[in-house]
Amino acid sequence: MSDNAWGVRSTISAALLTDFAESRDMSRAAALSGTGITESRLADPDVEIAVECEFRIIRNILAHTANEPGLGLLTGFTVHLPMLGSLGIALSTCSTVHQMAEIWSRYARISLAYAHYRLEDAGSRVFLHLDVSEVPPDVRRFALERDLAMLRTVQRELLRWDVPVQRLETDLERHPVYEAVGTLLGISDIAFERPGTLLVFEAADLERPVPQAHPLLRQQHEQMCADIIQRRRERVGLSGRVREQLVRRGGLTDQADIAATLNMSVRTLRRRLAEEGTNFRELSTETTGMLAEELLAKGCTVDTVAERLGYSSVSAFAVAFRSWKGKPPGRFARENYSARRTAAV
Rank of each mutant, 00 (worst) to 15 (best):
T287V: 11
R125P: 00
F20A: 11
G240D: 10
D162H: 08
S105W: 01
E22F: 07
H129K: 09
F201D: 02
A30Q: 12
R28P: 01
I49M: 04
A318E: 13
D147G: 04
M264S: 04
T65A: 07
V132S: 09
V210M: 08
L17T: 11
M264H: 03
G182T: 00
P45E: 11
V305N: 06
A101N: 13
G289K: 14
E294R: 15
E307C: 03
E68Y: 03
F55W: 15
A339F: 06
A29K: 12
D121C: 03
L168D: 00
Y311A: 03
H175Y: 02
G186V: 02
F332W: 10
E169A: 08
V177L: 05
L42C: 04
E54T: 09
R174G: 05
G196M: 03
W104Y: 14
A43D: 09
G34D: 01
S105A: 15
E202C: 09
C94V: 04
E307S: 15
R340G: 14
S86K: 12
V79W: 03
G299Y: 09
E22I: 06
G330M: 09
G182Y: 02
R267K: 15
A63Q: 10
G326D: 00
M224P: 09
V8M: 12
R208H: 10
L16S: 14
F201H: 01
K325E: 12
S10N: 13
A226W: 09
S323V: 06
A149H: 05
F321P: 06
C225E: 09
R281D: 14
Y178A: 01
A50Y: 12
A66E: 02
M290A: 15
Q245W: 14
A203I: 01
D254F: 05
